[in-house]
Deep mutational scan, measured.
Amino acid sequence: MLYRITVRNADGEKLEIVVEMSEDEVRALAEELRKAGYEVRVEPIPEGEEP
């Protein structure tokens, strides 16, 4: 499935990426980023919607 991941650092800089991963993989990635001090938001992209 496609997911949009938005990551912000302490300075407020934002990075937005689209990935194709399983829900478990995305959850693990988000958890690791949060542990590293980043603010993370994950949104699933519905099938048929443009990323």
Results as ranks from 00 to 15, higher is better:
1 M>P: 03
1 M>L: 15
1 M>N: 14
1 M>D: 07
1 M>H: 07
1 M>Y: 08
2 L>Q: 12
2 L>M: 13
2 L>V: 07
3 Y>E: 00
3 Y>G: 00
4 R>F: 08
5 I>A: 00
5 I>H: 00
6 T>A: 03
6 T>F: 08
6 T>S: 09
7 V>D: 00
7 V>C: 02
7 V>G: 15
8 R>I: 06
8 R>A: 13
8 R>K: 13
9 N>S: 11
9 N>K: 15
9 N>I: 07
9 N>P: 07
10 A>T: 11
10 A>I: 06
11 D>L: 15
11 D>P: 04
12 G>S: 04
12 G>W: 03
12 G>K: 05
12 G>T: 03
12 G>C: 15
13 E>P: 11
13 E>S: 15
13 E>L: 13
13 E>G: 15
14 K>F: 15
14 K>G: 04
15 L>F: 09
15 L>G: 08
16 E>P: 08
17 I>Y: 08
17 I>D: 01
17 I>K: 08
17 I>C: 02
17 I>P: 00
18 V>N: 05
18 V>W: 09
19 V>R: 15
19 V>T: 08
20 E>L: 06
20 E>D: 08
20 E>F: 06
20 E>R: 05
20 E>A: 05
21 M>C: 02
21 M>F: 09
21 M>L: 12
21 M>H: 02
21 M>A: 13
21 M>Q: 02
21 M>R: 04
21 M>Y: 04
22 S>K: 11
22 S>Q: 05
23 E>R: 07
23 E>M: 09
23 E>T: 13
23 E>A: 15
24 D>T: 10
24 D>E: 11
24 D>R: 05
24 D>K: 05
24 D>P: 14
25 E>G: 11
25 E>K: 06
25 E>C: 02
25 E>V: 03
25 E>H: 05
26 V>I: 05
26 V>Y: 01
26 V>W: 02
27 R>K: 13
27 R>T: 10
28 A>K: 05
28 A>F: 11
28 A>D: 11
28 A>I: 04
28 A>N: 09
29 L>V: 05
29 L>M: 13
30 A>Y: 05
30 A>K: 04
31 E>Q: 09
31 E>H: 04
31 E>S: 06
32 E>A: 05
32 E>G: 14
33 L>R: 01
33 L>E: 00
33 L>G: 01
33 L>T: 01
33 L>W: 13
33 L>M: 13
34 R>T: 11
34 R>W: 08
35 K>H: 04
35 K>L: 05
36 A>T: 04
36 A>P: 14
37 G>Q: 02
37 G>D: 02
38 Y>Q: 05
38 Y>V: 06
38 Y>E: 01
38 Y>T: 02
39 E>Q: 12
39 E>N: 15
40 V>G: 01
40 V>R: 00
41 R>I: 13
42 V>R: 01
42 V>A: 03
42 V>Y: 05
42 V>M: 05
42 V>D: 00
42 V>G: 00
42 V>T: 04
43 E>I: 13
43 E>H: 11
43 E>R: 06
43 E>K: 07
44 P>N: 09
44 P>F: 11
45 I>H: 12
45 I>V: 06
45 I>K: 09
46 P>H: 14
46 P>A: 14
46 P>V: 15
46 P>S: 13
46 P>W: 14
46 P>L: 15
47 E>W: 05
47 E>T: 13
48 G>W: 07
48 G>N: 12
48 G>T: 15
48 G>L: 14
49 E>S: 11
49 E>W: 11
49 E>R: 01
49 E>F: 10
50 E>L: 12
50 E>C: 03
51 P>R: 00
51 P>L: 04
